Amino acid sequence: MSTRLAIIVAKIGLLLASTLLSVAALELGLTFWYADLRETGPLELVEEWGSPFIFKARSHPESKTYGVRRSLPIELATPPGTTRILSYGDSISAGHKLSEPETYAYMLEKRLSESNDGIVEVLNMSRGHSPTIHSFHLRSDVPRFKPDGVVLEIELINDVSDEARVHTSGQDEDGLPLQIHRHRYLLGWDGHILSPLSVFGSSIERTKLYAKLSRWYGRLRYKMNPNPIFEPDSNKTFYHLYPDRFLLTQPALDDGFERIFRTVSGIQRYLQRQGIRFLLVIIPSRHVFTREQYTETSTAIVARAERRAEELEIPYVSMTAALAERGGAELFMDFCHPTGDGNEVIADVLEPELVGW
């Protein structure tokens, strides 16, 4: 190699090294800058799937809670005389901004243990944001925890837009996806949730720099081509992260709705094959009770979900009537999360459904 060529190669190498160091420094700077926003974590990937979209609370062997929201240790082998129920859902079932005793899973465990002949465990699994993600967790959790029943909560304003962002491939014998390539949330390299405009779930998408740049891009796309669903005069509302509004078109949202019920139906088949009971819980949004511009469409999508569950012969309970009777909008802390009193209403409705499981 000539001296001139060696100098050129060295300069290119130096440029690449300095660029990588600059990017790394920027990533660390963003991590430090947004440290106060990392409310949830640290989290960890679920080994069986090896996907940045499938994650749960980090397990601590000494606590024996296995990433479940629970203060008491869990024995993987269900103790004799114990009925075990796994409770899945989004941040509603996890108990957003609530203490553990304020969650309906905690209340149900206490009540059912008092009314049943034996002990009942209701494990608040606290993993996953929508049914597609839950379908992956279930296939890891069921062989491990060996439950007698599963309860799955959905709330349409949240879950439809979550599922509209999903891309999967392959199917197992129950019609559940084998791989996931895209979702609204993924696990960052530091064990905290990111919400970039994901394309493939690659390593670079797990950085805060990519998340920041992709969100800027999303805001620009929306500014250039606004989505009428999210304009001020629209009577529809779905949860969004601002930069992803341009992706949440009506066809995408319709597909998200259907994906929910295809997945829930597959979950039901998976559990039935193993003799495990299943119940779907449909939670309305606060808009159903507020009599404003979103009330009509928010009510309609809950009714649509109830009809779809009936068509697919999915056992379900809807919380709309009970919440309306006990306080309606006052039982919510925001557009979708029930208060502790709201969770008590949910537990009241679920208790007779689960007695005898």
Rank of each mutant, 00 (worst) to 15 (best):
L14T: 06
H60G: 07
M125P: 05
T339C: 03
V281P: 02
H129A: 15
L213K: 14
N225K: 14
R111I: 11
E205Y: 04
F32M: 14
L5N: 04
V23G: 10
I7K: 11
M319G: 08
L220H: 14
S18M: 04
T31C: 08
P315D: 02
I301N: 00
L28Y: 09
V281E: 01
E205Q: 02
S169I: 06
S140E: 10
S99N: 13
S169T: 15
Q179A: 13
E39G: 14
E330P: 09
A6P: 10
L187N: 09
E155A: 13
L16W: 07
P61T: 09
D190W: 03
L20T: 02
A77S: 08
D141W: 00
A324G: 15
Y106E: 08
S298F: 02
P226Y: 01
F136L: 08
R262V: 03
I260T: 09
P177E: 15
E306C: 06
D334H: 03
L209A: 11
S169R: 15
D244G: 07
A57F: 12
P196I: 04
M319A: 08
G50K: 09
S99C: 04
G67T: 09
V151S: 03
I282H: 04
I267V: 12
A57V: 09
S318H: 10
E310I: 06
S22C: 12
N124Y: 10
E258N: 15
P232K: 03
V46T: 04
R277G: 15
I204E: 10
R273L: 12
S285M: 11
R58S: 13
P243D: 13
F246Q: 01
T83D: 02
N235D: 15
D348R: 00
Y104S: 10
R144L: 06
L86R: 09
Y106P: 10
Q171W: 11
S285E: 10
S265K: 11
G327Y: 08
K146Q: 10
G328C: 09
R184S: 12
R277C: 05
E173H: 12
I154N: 05
E153L: 11
V120F: 01
E173I: 06
P52I: 00
A329H: 02
F332V: 01
G95F: 04
